[in-house]
Computed example of a mutant assay.
Amino acid sequence: MEKAYTPITAKYHCTDSVSIHDQNTLAALGHPKITLPFTDATYILQFDGQINAGFDLTGIVPTLEGSTVVITLPEPTEISHETSDVQLVYEKENIANPLKAGEESEWIAEQKSAMLDRAVSLGLYDEAKTNA
């Protein structure tokens, strides 16, 4: 299957952080709202990221107006969203509630949606249209 050509016409660089507070509960016993004392843990992760925006050119609509070809682009979209340099800047770990492998990826993934919303509100898609 051929991949669609999606040129990047705007970039948004960001640094974000996520604060996680976790405490074990009796969820396994059917009581998810009952917390266990002395099992709280807190983590603050900081990371850099880049959101690339542009256009899916499979959605272009060419029309002929007299002797002029007019190309109508679709609305801009998120092409990619990478994060890097994840750093643990604060940790209050608990031996009864340690950070599990992969959990930080889940927390960062949740932040990506908020980061995209912020980038769009700050004009990422407007810049993509202007640069196109």
Score class of each variant (00 low, 15 high):
residue 65 E to I: 04
residue 26 L to E: 03
residue 30 G to L: 06
residue 7 P to L: 02
residue 70 V to I: 14
residue 126 D to C: 12
residue 60 I to L: 01
residue 38 F to T: 13
residue 62 P to Q: 08
residue 66 G to L: 06
residue 12 Y to L: 12
residue 8 I to Y: 00
residue 43 Y to D: 04
residue 36 L to D: 13
residue 47 F to D: 03
residue 47 F to S: 07
residue 106 E to N: 12
residue 95 I to V: 12
residue 35 T to F: 14
residue 107 W to I: 06
residue 92 K to H: 12
residue 67 S to R: 11
residue 121 S to T: 10
residue 17 S to Q: 10
residue 79 I to K: 05
residue 116 L to D: 03
residue 5 Y to W: 01
residue 58 T to R: 02
residue 83 T to G: 05
residue 18 V to R: 02
residue 132 A to I: 07
residue 119 A to R: 04
residue 46 Q to D: 04
residue 9 T to Y: 00
residue 85 D to E: 12
residue 67 S to F: 10
residue 16 D to M: 07
residue 36 L to F: 11
residue 68 T to P: 03
residue 100 K to H: 11
residue 56 D to G: 00
residue 109 A to L: 10
residue 20 I to R: 02
residue 44 I to Y: 03
residue 8 I to A: 02
residue 89 V to F: 04
residue 75 E to W: 08
residue 77 T to V: 09
residue 50 Q to Y: 07
residue 98 P to M: 10
residue 24 N to Q: 15
residue 4 A to N: 14
residue 79 I to Y: 07
residue 39 T to C: 13
residue 128 A to R: 05
residue 81 H to S: 15
residue 23 Q to E: 13
residue 112 K to E: 08
residue 41 A to S: 10
residue 106 E to Y: 08
residue 38 F to V: 13
residue 102 G to I: 00
residue 110 E to D: 15
residue 106 E to R: 12
residue 70 V to L: 12
residue 2 E to T: 11
residue 91 E to S: 15
residue 117 D to L: 08
residue 63 T to G: 11
residue 29 L to Y: 00
residue 64 L to V: 14
residue 46 Q to F: 07
residue 107 W to G: 07
residue 73 L to A: 05
residue 88 L to G: 04
residue 33 K to M: 08
residue 116 L to Y: 01
residue 41 A to G: 08
residue 20 I to T: 09
residue 124 L to W: 08
residue 64 L to F: 13
residue 80 S to Y: 09
residue 106 E to Q: 08
residue 19 S to A: 15
residue 35 T to Y: 15
residue 117 D to E: 15
residue 131 N to L: 04
residue 81 H to G: 12
residue 88 L to K: 00
